[in-house]
Design a protein around this nucleic acid. Sequence first.
DNA 1: AATGAATGAGCGTTCATTCAT
DNA 2: GATGAATGAACGCTCATTCAT
Lengths: 223, 223, 223, 223
Amino acid sequence: MEWRYCIKTNNKNDKYQRILEAAINIFAKQGFYQSTISQVATEAGVADGTIYLYFKSKDDILIQFFSDKTKQVFERFREEVDKANSAVDKLGNLIRIHLEEFQRDRNMAMVYQVETHQNYRIAENQIKEMSKMYLDIVSEIVEQGQAEGSVRRDLYVGLVKRFIIGSVDEVINTWLHSGGEYDLVSMAEPLVDLFIRGVGRVEERNNITPAGESSYSRAAEIN
Amino acid sequence: MEWRYCIKTNNKNDKYQRILEAAINIFAKQGFYQSTISQVATEAGVADGTIYLYFKSKDDILIQFFSDKTKQVFERFREEVDKANSAVDKLGNLIRIHLEEFQRDRNMAMVYQVETHQNYRIAENQIKEMSKMYLDIVSEIVEQGQAEGSVRRDLYVGLVKRFIIGSVDEVINTWLHSGGEYDLVSMAEPLVDLFIRGVGRVEERNNITPAGESSYSRAAEIN
Amino acid sequence: MEWRYCIKTNNKNDKYQRILEAAINIFAKQGFYQSTISQVATEAGVADGTIYLYFKSKDDILIQFFSDKTKQVFERFREEVDKANSAVDKLGNLIRIHLEEFQRDRNMAMVYQVETHQNYRIAENQIKEMSKMYLDIVSEIVEQGQAEGSVRRDLYVGLVKRFIIGSVDEVINTWLHSGGEYDLVSMAEPLVDLFIRGVGRVEERNNITPAGESSYSRAAEIN
Amino acid sequence: MEWRYCIKTNNKNDKYQRILEAAINIFAKQGFYQSTISQVATEAGVADGTIYLYFKSKDDILIQFFSDKTKQVFERFREEVDKANSAVDKLGNLIRIHLEEFQRDRNMAMVYQVETHQNYRIAENQIKEMSKMYLDIVSEIVEQGQAEGSVRRDLYVGLVKRFIIGSVDEVINTWLHSGGEYDLVSMAEPLVDLFIRGVGRVEERNNITPAGESSYSRAAEIN
DNA sequence: AATGAATGAGCGTTCATTCAT
DNA sequence: GATGAATGAACGCTCATTCAT
């Protein structure tokens, strides 16, 4: 009995996951409004009506995607950041795991990027919540860095958060629109270097080995 | 005669502009796919069929928006950049005019932000062309800066472009989603400062007056 | 099990047939371009959308009509012709069955007559195929008659085919436009007589009982 | 004054004729319902609105076509028939002039053929009137032939009319659908022969030179 | 008389959602 | 629970006709 229940639960969960993944797959390729429930059902190998046993509506699929799937990813960000000690290492871990996870699941990345940039967002609440999680992590890192002395104090933290998130987003976006074939993670190191040091030249510093230099060749596809 | 011709031309042009603006207004509020031709027609004060005298299709409205309206804006970017001499000033001018123009026409900004982040872009060609214009301007500035000695040489320029554009995009996005009521242009100066100096603390530099400090109060709405 | 399957198949087939018949009914009354999908749906007792579960488009209804319904009819022509031995009897059978079938399904007759006489024919391929079937039957009959000695040898067969088909067509057309209330089949015998003997008087033959004389009263409505 | 009036009248008439011809040209190519007033206006070299100064509606163009243009043609039929004396010669003249006129104006022929075969005919009254004219001519010829002794008496005249008209129609139809490039008029002689003698073989007659034999090679395109 | 911009009713088609089986 | 046929509201687009100029 226990076992059967378990199987059934897994089966049920399986079908939920299968539909969700199928949906994200389709949404990533065609966009939410260009995708039909029929296409999602076919991709998931279920009947059209079955989808409504697991999701309230087409919109609900997107909402579940944000509250379920991407939430897991963002929780991993927190874990990864906590593994490091210094603010700079924490920032490095955040950027790296972000690029890693989005590279690992390109469909998720695509849907995430597109949906977060809509004006009317179906999953507004979920997106806001996740956005806050991410912004809070960056805030903490910046503030820790300022306390440690590794980060400038004359910063407007609200802007720094957009400065960092926006850059990472755009790097992912470029990767997505390029076809997603080059190595996204190799961008992490030089990106962190840009965040910390900026593009400006400092006389006293120009003898330092360029950070992330080694990555340039690997990432040469971007231009 | 000349006058009548002028009036007629203006009338014709007027209606084209009126429809385009009405459409962008509606698209900005509801998104392209949620907007109907009927809504646009009502907003423009014309009949549904009239729209098809000026635009080939619903998609064409978006394409014309990108070829017409945003092209003008991007040409202003080039002009403004050319007014400055040093790379740093040019970057400052670019960011400032970008934020200025997008703040001035919030509907344009919204549609631009949303449409450029779709996976299937209706105005793909126009967007690619404009994107290239912008990326080229940034490339030139970075290269000039390197020649002048004001910009680091150990940079992967392809990444620097995303680093800059992404940050600006995200600052605009945040402003759009906040309701667009605070002063976006005040972000220009501190943003350029971040690009140039990064967030990292440099011992030798920590006695400098914080760049953009004065903007913080004005922009306090972001967090 | 077998029974359920049968019922289900019939139900599905039923709806397809119902829509097809409703469509032909409407098309016959109003013409293809004057008829709307809504009218067809109402006539068939289904929703507008249901039609698109069985037909790809409005045009496809006409195409299916020609591939399905009229094909069956034309196959009956072949069967009926094969039942006779002499060329003259075969021609008689062809004309008789043609008039019989078209009289039996006046809507089919109407749509067939109208659509085959368009300049741009939606079901061009199907019509050409069927036209060829009919022409081939007539050709065979004429050639058999020539071999038997019952048909003149100094004939241009290409023209004879039009001569026969055109007459039959026109007789059907007249019947259709008259309201289709008199007996069409009674035209078969006198028509065959005209094909064989023509209208010209032959001295040696004028003592023969007039063929088809008996039909005149029955068909007196035509003039 | 007189002269100017005349010019003006001609101009007016010119424009009416130009529009009518343009319309028939377009209708012949695309069919009535597939043609737009705009296309007709462009073809005629006038503005869309101008058409409504000369015709009450789109339907009215078709009605004028039948009452104006084709009426002239059918009056020529009468004239040509009157030139002959014997019934057989009259029939020959009728068929010949019919094929000649329709070959001379292929657009007229196409529109005539298509519109007369519709179920709901826009120009119903005009078509009926013309049809009656034609049928009456054939009736007269047949009756004259019977009086002369050249035509069988045991004929149902109502049917004979369809027999003749239908054949001619179908020969024209075949020519139209073949692209109208072979010589249609060459069909007149063999067609009359078929009407008079039929396809049946008469022992006593088989030494006569085949009528219309000479035309066969010229008309070899039909099959 | 001539224009052609403007109109808006009307159509074919799609697709999220429901529900009988 | 699972199905997929059926629904019908909604949309983009067309085009005959009008009318101010």
